[in-house]
């Protein structure tokens, strides 16, 4: 791979209780590129994504083996501060999940929890983040109204603004457009294209056209195993594995 590696995943196994969900995943995620994870439902791609910011820690009875190295540091080391890790590795979820607060407070949340009081700084960052998420024009005159009054697509872009406001280095997206209509989806995809200038993006998607459109690299998962990982054009035009070809040509899944 010619790009700098942001995250290196080494021999990753993952268990829910006795159930093994991920088998020996080895994968290098390039910096400031979009990496898409595709595969049929239940193949472990979301689980894998949630390993990258240790979101799975919330679920009781999980077990992780192997290493995930972010900037030279294994994030599953005992000394790692999960809170710091998560402010470095942000996440956008499948369903838009704005807090029941105002639009402004949603974006400012990351600063509030860090105890930042500087009002000018927060105002400025909120504005830039909303701009970055392409939402500023739509909401600048109603920042203090509830975020729950926004449409689904706007809410999702608000969640993206909220995530980028704290300036993470990696942005994880778990099917960010699956609950949105085609127009909102298009906006999100354009946004991803912009965001990759500044962030390393890992995106889980069910939609193969979406992966083909937005991703520089694509990883294909099947039954908890990483089948193939390559540049997106290679995956979609000349896959090396038969399973990959079967999946992207729609023979199953």
């Amino acid at each position: 791979m010619e790009h700098k590696k942001k995250i290196q995943v080494k021999d990753l196994d993952f268990f829910y209780g006795e159930n093994q969900v991920l088998y020996n995943i080895n994968l290098d995620i390039p910096e400031k590129k979009v990496t898409a994870l595709i595969g049929p439902s239940g193949c472990g791609k979301s689980t894998f994504l949630r390993c990258l910011n240790r979101m799975n820690d919330l679920i009781p009875g999980i077990k992780v083996r192997g290493k995930i190295i972010l900037d030279g540091q294994d994030i599953y080391d005992t000394g790692v501060d999960v809170v710091k890790l998560r402010s470095k590795v942000g996440m956008v979820f499948q369903k838009p999940n704005p807090f029941p607060k105002s639009i402004f407070e949603n974006v400012a949340y990351g600063f509030r929890i860090k105890g930042i009081k500087d009002k000018d700084f927060i105002d400025e960052r909120v504005k830039t983040s909303l701009r970055m998420a392409g939402l500023w024009e739509e909401v600048h005159d109603r920042l203090s109204s509830s975020a729950l009054g926004l449409s689904g697509g706007q809410q999702q872009r608000l969640c993206i603004a909220r995530a980028v406001a704290v300036e993470p280095e990696v942005l994880l997206m778990d099917e960010p457009a699956s609950a949105l209509d085609p127009i909102a989806t298009k906006k999100i995809e354009e946004l991803i294209y912009e965001l990759k200038k500044e962030f390393t993006i890992v995106i889980v998607t069910h939609n193969m056209q979406q992966a083909a459109r937005v991703a520089d690299y694509t990883a294909f998962f099947l039954m908890g195993k990483l089948i193939e990982f390559d540049k997106t054009e290679n995956i979609f035009t000349s896959p090396r594995k038969k399973e990959t070809e079967d999946y992207i040509t729609g023979r199953f899944g």
């Binding site: 979101m55 919330l58 809170v83 704005p98 949340y109 909220r162 995530a163």
Partner: peptide, 9 residues
């Protein structure tokens, strides 16, 4: 999860 993912304790 949204809150935790933003680095909140």
């Amino acid at each position: 999860e949204g809150s935790l993912a933003l680095g909140a304790t």
